[in-house]
Design a binder for these strands. Sequence first.
DNA 1: ATCTAATATATAGATATCTATTCTTATAGA
DNA 2: TCTATAAGAATAGATATCTATATATTAGAT
Lengths: 159, 159
Amino acid sequence: MTEEMQAEPKPAGLDGDPVEFAVMTEIGIISQLAENLFQSHLPKGMTVAQFSVLNHLLRLEVQETISELASAMQVTQPTMSSTVRKLEDKGLVELVHEQDDRRIRRVAVTAAGAGCRNNAVASLAPMAEILRQNMPPSIWRDILPQLNEIRVFLDKMRD
Amino acid sequence: MTEEMQAEPKPAGLDGDPVEFAVMTEIGIISQLAENLFQSHLPKGMTVAQFSVLNHLLRLEVQETISELASAMQVTQPTMSSTVRKLEDKGLVELVHEQDDRRIRRVAVTAAGAGCRNNAVASLAPMAEILRQNMPPSIWRDILPQLNEIRVFLDKMRD
DNA sequence: ATCTAATATATAGATATCTATTCTTATAGA
DNA sequence: TCTATAAGAATAGATATCTATATATTAGAT
């Protein structure tokens, strides 16, 4: 996976790597840099994982089970169990039992949770602005369809 | 960062998110899916972090310090210290003291390490082939420059 | 020469994640 | 009705990472 030589003069990633590998390398690095940047602009004590749960539920205006959230966020169920419990400890979500099936508890964002997420979004706004001012929007728009296609394919591959 | 509405009909990411956010979401998911896929095809007991170190040193044909490796791999120095120690415990690398400056130890891949990496590369080959057969190469080639630009910018931003 | 600052690495403690297992509740079949 | 199986969620234990700090060695200044 790393030995194949291209005739091109070193693309972007590294030396003679095939282009798929170079893309994955860039994506991995971007993902890490973005996560760190993102984390550093969130309010104290709030992790990216926690923010993502609040944001997901509020944006879609739904209540979901822990398993549904785990699937949406691409983490395991115990991991999401832990994340949700931390949000619950801070009073940012409530777990409401389903009447029909008492195995199920749905995660509902509280008023405090909504406020907390809005604060976080506000903290993030300047960063988004910097991105927008320093990079032409076309850079993002042009690659989104391809990224989506790659994501969908990788998602199909896991079984 | 998530409330702004676009006139477009839901790009790829999610609802009304700005395009930068949608791209970052896709990149985060792809990174995780790829890491999992990658990990599942590596030989038993070898992590992505460990493979990356072997691959980096062998591909560039160099010996680097732990700090240099940490910087290259975008992890902290203690993390790289731990990764290198695991490789050392398995006899896949050796830490050679610098004569001039005895604070410095350079990480050198052993013959066993090179063999191990070649095995890993072979295990990975079928996966790379599947990618190549199912997605047109243009998908990867077209987005590499933009990804590179994003990565370089994010890299500049951390200070 | 000796003290101070800088550099390379290691250690300690905390956290977020994973896999494997257990617990609770619901459903289906005998 | 009773039992077996399934499904949602929690717990236990392991690991990889992080931040903060300590140790060892070198370089520079007075």
